[in-house]
Nucleic acid binder design. Sequence first.
DNA 1: TTGCGTGCAAAGGTTTTGCATGGCA
DNA 2: TGCCATGCAAAACCTTTGCACGCAA
Lengths: 138, 138
Amino acid sequence: MNSRSRYKTKQKETLLQYLETIPGTHVTAGDVCEHFKKQGTTIGQSTIYRQMESLVDEGILNKYIIDGNSPACFEYVSPDTHREAEICFHCKCEKCGKLIHLHCDELEEIQLHILKEHSFKVDPVRTVFYGVCDQCMA
Amino acid sequence: MNSRSRYKTKQKETLLQYLETIPGTHVTAGDVCEHFKKQGTTIGQSTIYRQMESLVDEGILNKYIIDGNSPACFEYVSPDTHREAEICFHCKCEKCGKLIHLHCDELEEIQLHILKEHSFKVDPVRTVFYGVCDQCMA
DNA sequence: TTGCGTGCAAAGGTTTTGCATGGCA
DNA sequence: TGCCATGCAAAACCTTTGCACGCAA
């Protein structure tokens, strides 16, 4: 629940610059830490956790909790695809663990349907469909 | 990924007996541990975690992940509501914590749609829609 | 100068695992 | 008898927090 940051720091800028290069990709906080470590750029992990959390609050990152034990996934949402991401669901295969992006108008209708008929406002960012992917079905 | 248990043990029976008394209630693994500790019945926590995980595999328990840091929630599903649960989705309000059961033909179509168009077989028992209920919207 | 952001290390809490023992079939 | 389940403790894991220092405004 960090409010929007007030200072512009080198770390925050570096982090944001990196995230902008991987739109639509899922990364964990650990992934990001490792990226900077390999690159030689050192940003403390607490800073990464804290900054990413405020980026979520600012709507620049989406945060997905796939399952309780694996780390949370973050995804950069560029300003122009922001609206699109609002109607993007995720599917998690319970066999192989694969995470699939689902992008479909029909799913938008579902949201509307549930809202109107069942008075429930679904949050796609939080919601994950669990099931089995085609490869694992065979 | 524990497969169905083969032996019938006292611990498993005790655990199941307790869970049957609280259908529709959300409990964490920790809650269950504490319950037995207070009651004098001692079941090791590893056993509780392991048994509950296999009960999930057997479809006797549902497991919900509310958010990554808080512990996972389990819910007993009685046999007679089990079949219903197969075509029943759940909505979890993120504000008040209320759990809503959705039974609707349109949702069945969605499953079919995702299966045919996106080659993903959704498991309704595992899948939870997160969002905000009507009371909390006001 | 003020106080926010950073970084390190350590804590926090949940869940998993190794291994010897005990119980079911 | 053979093998699974249990239980304890410790590990593993992700994430948060305390505190002193440095840097932005």
